[in-house]
C-alpha cells in the first residue's frame, strides 16, 4: 500500500514538473526561433541563388533530453497495446528544434548568414542502470555548413 502511494506521489510530482519544464522550454524555443529567423537553414546541398560565398565551415548543435517519469510510465502502458505514443512526440519535437537552434546560434556567433546541407541525427542513450533496457535519454545532433555570403 505504501508502495502504491509512493508511486502515485511520484507520478503526480513528475507529471507537474515535466509539464512545467516542457512549457517553459517550448516558450523559450518559440522566442529564440523568432530571434534567429534571419539565419536561414536549408537542406539543399548548395547555396541557393548565385551570391558569392566568402567563408564556409561546419556548424553543429546538440541536445540530450529525457522523458519525465510520468510520461515514461504512460508510454510504457501504451507500448503494451501499441499505437501512437503521444508522450514521445513533443519530446523529440522540442529536442530537434533545440538542436537546430543551437546550430543557428553557433552560426550567428561566427558571423554566418545561412546554414546549408542541414542534417539531423538521433541516437538513443541506453541506461547502464537498467541493463540497457531503459532509455536514459535521446541525443539529437543537428549539423550543416555555415555560409557567409558576400555583402
Amino acid at each position: 500500500m505504501a508502495d502504491l502511494i509512493g508511486l502515485l506521489i511520484l507520478l503526480l510530482v513528475t507529471y507537474l514538473t515535466g509539464r512545467w519544464f516542457e512549457r517553459k522550454h517550448f516558450a523559450s524555443i518559440r522566442a529564440r526561433e523568432q530571434q534567429l529567423a534571419p539565419v536561414v537553414i536549408t537542406t539543399l546541398r548548395s547555396v541557393p541563388g548565385d551570391r558569392p560565398v566568402v567563408q564556409a565551415a561546419l556548424v553543429t548543435g546538440s541536445v540530450v533530453v529525457s522523458l519525465d517519469y510520468f510520461k515514461r510510465f504512460l508510454a510504457g502502458l501504451r507500448a503494451l497495446i501499441g499505437g501512437r505514443i503521444r508522450a514521445y512526440e513533443p519530446l523529440l519535437d522540442r529536442a530537434r528544434r533545440e538542436a537546430m537552434l543551437r546550430m543557428r546560434e553557433q552560426a550567428r556567433a561566427r558571423g554566418y548568414d545561412m546554414v546549408i546541407n542541414m542534417r539531423l541525427e538521433t541516437s538513443r542513450l541506453a541506461s547502464a542502470a537498467s541493463n540497457g533496457k531503459g532509455t536514459a535519454g535521446v541525443e539529437i545532433l543537428a549539423f550543416g555548413t555555415g555560409i557567409k555570403l558576400a555583402p
Binding site: E22, V64, Y69
Partner: peptide, 22 residues
C-alpha cells in the same frame, strides 16, 4: 542526471559530455 531523468527535460551533463566527445 538520474534526478533529471525523473522530472524530464534536458540532461545538460550528457549534452556537454557528448559535445566534448564529438
Amino acid at each position: 542526471a538520474s534526478l533529471k531523468n525523473l522530472v524530464g527535460g534536458e540532461l545538460k551533463g550528457y549534452t556537454e559530455l557528448l559535445h566534448e566527445a564529438r
